[in-house]
Design a protein around this nucleic acid. Structure first.
Length: 316
DNA sequence: AAAGGGCTCAACCGCTTACCG
DNA sequence: CCGGTAAGCGGTTGAGCCCTT
């Protein structure tokens, strides 16, 4: 039957940190062929890496447009809130912060935010802690999010912090340079110079890269969100259904879960997107500030939809 | 200046899901 | 429908860096 075994179990497969040379080989290959078909990457490039390793290196590190380090308070707020809503669905959370990788968000949560939230959720003297209903979780998250980000509930355009929408103007070269943080700069110094130059040449779309874009399937990423935005109808209908059910907190969460389930099967992303957007708006914005929150969310998401934040639609 | 303890984050591991023949 | 592989995802690890003493 079908395909030969994956190289993952192969002998002589190199592990450990990637060298700049390997990075360049991988980037050059993806430049020509686009991401995807990872199994063929080690075969065609001669890299002694398994396909998984190549995919991870690309998605977590080399993919253009990735923003590294320095999470803004607003990003923290979004992560805290979404983590409370979705749990440890890092890929789903990352789809709302397309410049961040799921790995990055996961690391940041485990090393910073988890402690922060725990600290903030410690029962305060004179304050009763509610039972563990979803509403309480969400409101605790909102509290933590608000604490993490003073600007979380306000229009980000007035925020002094770096917000999603303010990042799209970053040149790709700067984004790539940012892909090499100081701690690894020494090791990857050569790559940090050469790879951005390679990417510069990509900025002119070619037929092959456009074709790659069409087949690119970064699941749950901004590209998908763009398609769902444009595809609209299903999402609108689903949002309307959800909106009708808003009377019950549990039904909302069930709907979220159902939508999430649907999304992972590739059919209900629009549902999740619209629903979560509504959910976040309802939950995050106090009465009277919903308009501002709406503007903030819409601003961010529309720009995501426009492909500013996710590199894949830009580059391929 | 050196030691060591804590922290960060890139990468790996293993499981699940989607897809193909 | 079934078996097998590729791809995706979340949890975990460990090397290297940083800070404190």
């Amino acid at each position: 039957m079908g395909r030969p075994p994956c190289c993952d179990n192969g002998v002589g497969v190199k592990k450990g940190p990637w060298t700049p040379e390997e990075d360049i080989v991988l980037v050059s290959y993806i430049q020509q062929h686009g991401p995807g078909n990872w199994r063929s990457v080690p075969e065609n490039t001669g890299l002694m890496r398994c396909s998984k390793s190549c995919r991870l290196r690309w998605t977590n590190y080399l993919r253009p447009g990735i923003k590294r380090g320095n999470f803004t308070p607003h990003e923290e707020g979004i992560i805290i809130h979404l983590q409370a809503l979705l749990g440890n669905k890092w890929a789903a959370i990352a789809s709302y912060l397309p410049q961040r990788t799921d790995n990055d968000i996961k690391n940041y949560w485990n090393t910073h935010l988890k402690k922060k939230v725990k600290r903030l959720q410690q029962p305060q003297p004179g304050h009763h802690q509610h039972s563990s209903s979803q509403t309480t979780i969400a409101s605790n998250a909102a509290t933590a999010a608000a604490a993490a980000s003073p600007n979380y509930y306000s229009n980000p355009s007035s925020s002094s912090s770096t917000h999603l929408h303010s990042n799209h103007i970053e040149p790709m070269q700067a984004a790539m340079a940012a892909s090499y943080p100081n701690t690894t700069a020494a090791r990857n110094d050569a790559t940090s110079i050469i790879v951005p130059k390679l990417f510069q040449t990509w900025m002119k779309p070619s037929p092959s890269t456009s074709a790659a874009a069409a087949s690119c399937s970064y699941k749950g990423g901004a590209m998908a969100m763009q398609e769902f935005r444009e595809d609209g109808q299903e999402g609108v209908a689903a949002a309307a259904v959800i909106s009708d059910n808003k009377s019950s907190s549990s039904s909302e969460m069930a709907a979220v879960a159902a939508a999430e389930e649907g999304r992972s099967s590739g059919s209900g992303a629009a549902t999740t997107f619209s629903l979560l957007e509504n959910w976040l708006l309802d939950d995050m914005a106090p009465p009277g500030q919903q308009a501002a929150a709406m503007e903030a969310m819409d601003y961010g998401f529309l720009e995501i939809s426009a492909g500013y934040c996710c590199a894949d639609p830009i580059m391929f």
